[in-house]
Design a binder for these strands. Structure first.
Lengths: 334, 334
DNA sequence: CTGAAAGCGCTTACAG
DNA sequence: CTGAAAGCGCTTACAG
């Protein structure tokens, strides 16, 4: 391995001069002539700085940790939403000269280790960490940004969307189309803020219009297959005419199961999804969905993180992005 | 930050003794009594080893680089296949005590930098790196494993599947069901070995049975929308009765576009996908598909990499996993 | 504009 | 079973 020392020897200068040139000669501290010469030599020798050494000496690692909740089935990246999000983070951070290490964490003790071992300068959390948030923040003084959190812990940066409004928009849309009997499906088991907010927005908006979302029309999609849910809906005494699901992913499965079972969407059952996931499939499907801007959300998370790294003293910052309903053809006029 | 030195001072021993205990007291070199005491103190003080320092001193980083080809649209993790694969790699490596850094690379020069800067002990490449493979191997003496490569470079480890056979199986299945006019769709632009092998296996097997796959029934899915392809197929003079696509992802889009356009699968058009992607959607769809075991493939890539890290002198090792056809209901008997 | 010294927090290699 | 010394490859902080 070529080191600064090797280059210094070859160039007949001190390591410091080489170091300054490699690091961009801050403030014109090295004459352009020597700088040029050193750059040429470094290139010739194929010099690549040793990040560990730099990290150790400068106490600055340029590492960002992306922390994902390890799901039971075992692959956090099986979820297209998380994958897309992570991809944007990696790309953005890389452009800014940071390295991204990805950590899947199961329980709390994993987290501190992940963050501290490499002296990560910042961390972005994907998934639900509400219950550990306070401890994470207290034990780790680096820049942290959470996503989609509904914890009440103060002094924590978070990027989320208006999930309640998303549910409300779905309800309003159904109501405006004349629907009065509705159903909801989502991964309730998570009991994450995100899902319960969407449900709350949906059911409360319905209530306000005098429409009740019956308890038995709230389906836990994590516990039952798509077919089971659909057939339960279709067999209901007071059969729902519309179904709101908490992701386009689920909506997609509903479409296919429906097609299979001879249920026409929207003729037999209207459907609203969530995410407006940027995929040809979703638009071809003609799925009406609550739009959230994943790109913007991820970019914002990076942005906040980078600002906190640059100045650790700025106050924590939480932002809630707006959502809107994208109307396509999956909701029928009654 | 708590350091070895702090612990040593508190315990009244040398740094070396602490170091040995922290690293698992290799070979019972420290008495269990002191070891116990040191562990307690380390826990109390919340000691987390500094990986940079360790990496620098031991010349062993315990970092694995996952290198993904940066796609034009910009997010390599928008592809569910890559995401799933990466997830398995991260999970597996983490279990073995390695850290995974993810790099998106555009052109060749990015790669060496990514690998060397942190002195990664190994790297797994996802995507097509055939043309740079030789240079990558020559310039980086760490353990490397490529995936789905069709380069003829020797002394390189690769994990792939029998893509040709996959195409052949699809052809045989169509033939056995009486199909004689067929079409193919995939991202030809890539001109990756993977896609052209699948095409070759498909078209050559057809040829051998006296069936020609016409040039104009080979669709470049990267250049045309799913609807365009479908309508081109349906408008053909000699209308194909079956379509083979190179991923379940594409098949999924075909289903939806077909549904939209009033084309029944398999009644109007039979369909075979590729991957047998582990998703409820695919099985609900009833898609007949060529199965490849992504879990096994990723695990194998990790396995080979770890063995090469453990012993750099073992010969490079390329493995080709088998594929099989999973029959569901998307191919009609003619 | 350039450099000598000290140190970041560990491990290796040796000595006892 | 334990430790003192040297060094990994850089940067910081200072001096000139």
């Amino acid at each position: 391995m070529v080191t600064l020392k090797d280059i210094a020897a070859r160039a007949g200068v001190s390591m410091m001069t080489v170091s300054r040139v490699i690091n961009g000669n801050q403030g014109g501290k090295v004459s352009e002539t020597t700088a040029q010469r050193i750059r040429t030599i470094a290139d010739e020798m194929g010099y690549v700085p040793n990040s560990s050494a730099r990290s150790l000496a400068a106490r600055s690692s340029r590492i960002i940790a992306a922390v994902l909740r390890n799901t039971d089935n075992g692959n956090p990246l099986a979820d297209p939403y998380s994958s897309l999000f992570l991809g944007i983070i990696i790309k953005t951070m890389q452009q800014k000269g940071y390295y991204v290490m990805v950590h899947f964490v199961q329980d709390y003790s994993d987290i501190t280790l992940s963050l501290r071992s490499w002296r990560a300068e910042g961390a972005i959390f994907l998934g639900v960490f509400d219950s550990e948030m306070r401890k994470i923040r207290n034990e780790n003084q680096m820049a942290l940004v959470f996503t989609d959190s509904y914890s009440n812990v103060r002094q924590v940066s978070n990027v989320g969307i208006d999930d309640y409004k998303g549910g409300a928009l779905a309800a309003e849309h159904f109501l405006s189309r004349g629907h009065r009997r509705l159903a909801f499906a989502g991964p309730l088991a998570d009991s994450t803020g995100v899902i319960s907010e969407r449900l709350a927005g949906f059911s409360e908006t319905l209530s306000q219009a005098g429409v009740i979302l019956p308890e038995n029309q709230i389906y836990n999609q994590a516990a039952r297959s798509t077919e089971e849910i659909l057939s339960a809906i279709m067999k209901s005494e007071e059969r729902p005419t519309g179904l709101f699901v908490t992701s386009d992913q689920i909506a997609s499965e509903i479409y296919i199961a429906a097609h299979h079972m001879g249920i026409a969407i929207p003729d037999d059952l209207s459907l609203i999804g969530f995410d407006d996931f940027p995929l040809e499939r979703i638009s071809t499907l003609g799925l009406t969905s609550i739009h959230q801007d994943i790109e913007e959300k991820a970019a914002l998370a990076c942005d906040i993180l980078l600002r906190r790294i640059a100045d650790p003293d700025i106050p924590s910052e939480s932002q809630t992005l707006d959502v809107k309903l994208i109307e396509r053809e999956s909701v029928k006029y009654l």
